[in-house]
Simulated scan of single mutants.
Amino acid sequence: MTLHQQTAPQTRRDRGLDALKRIDGQGGEAVVNALADIAPDFADMLLEFPFGDIYTREGLDLRSREVATIAALAAMGTATPQLKVHMQAGLNVGLSREEIVEICMQMAVYAGFPAALNALFAAKEVFAEAA
């Protein structure tokens, strides 16, 4: 490339797609594709804000971001499908099964035993699918 040639800056959507592929792989793509026929604008928002803006920020690596995300979703106790996607993402970015189990157990202290139990059973399903 010469000095006069420049590549176009990556858009928020492009950054989001790249991050989604690195983090969630096919699971994330399936979520975006599932939204295409009902809420394509929401699919774009999902790519642009969390993945294009937040996940690509400096300050935390992807592994740390997934620890925080798994903990938050587990504590909510109402987002099992998203929790499973992010548990798989955690595995994708270097978390071990043992670390994911410990994150779930830690939630018993702050979110209660029911939330921790739900998260542990979600982890069990994710691990079985990954085997």
Score class of each variant (00 low, 15 high):
Ala71His: 00
Ala75Lys: 06
Gly112Phe: 00
Thr69Arg: 03
Leu47Val: 06
Gln26Pro: 02
Phe49Val: 12
Glu66His: 01
Glu125Thr: 11
Ala75Gly: 07
Ile38Leu: 14
Ala30Gly: 08
Pro50Lys: 05
Asn92Thr: 00
Leu120Phe: 08
Leu83Trp: 10
Ala115Lys: 11
Val32Gln: 10
Ala72Arg: 05
Ala30Lys: 10
Ala111Asn: 02
Asp14Ser: 11
Leu120Gly: 11
Met76His: 07
Gln106Glu: 08
Pro114Ser: 08
His86Glu: 02
Ser64Asp: 10
Met87Ala: 01
Ala130Pro: 04
Arg12Ile: 00
Asp18Phe: 01
Asp53Ser: 11
Phe121Met: 15
Ala39Met: 09
Glu129Gly: 12
Tyr110Trp: 07
Gln5Tyr: 12
Gln88Cys: 05
Gly28Thr: 03
Ala75Thr: 05
Asp24Lys: 13
Tyr55Gly: 02
Leu120Trp: 00
Gly59Trp: 03
Ala89Pro: 05
Tyr55Leu: 04
Ala34Val: 06
Leu120Ser: 09
Ala75Phe: 10
Met45Asn: 13
Leu35Ser: 10
Met107His: 09
Glu58Cys: 08
Thr80Gln: 13
Asp24Leu: 14
Ala89Ser: 10
Leu91Tyr: 04
Leu20Ile: 00
Ile38Val: 15
Thr69Glu: 02
Phe49Gly: 00
Asp41Thr: 11
Leu20Val: 01
Phe51Val: 00
Asp53Pro: 03
Gln82Trp: 09
Leu3Asn: 14
Asp37Lys: 14
Met45Ser: 13
Ala19Trp: 02
Leu3Ala: 13
Tyr110Met: 08
Leu117Glu: 02
Ile70Ser: 00
Pro114Gly: 06
Ala8Asp: 15
Asn33Phe: 06
Gln5Gly: 04
Val67Gly: 03
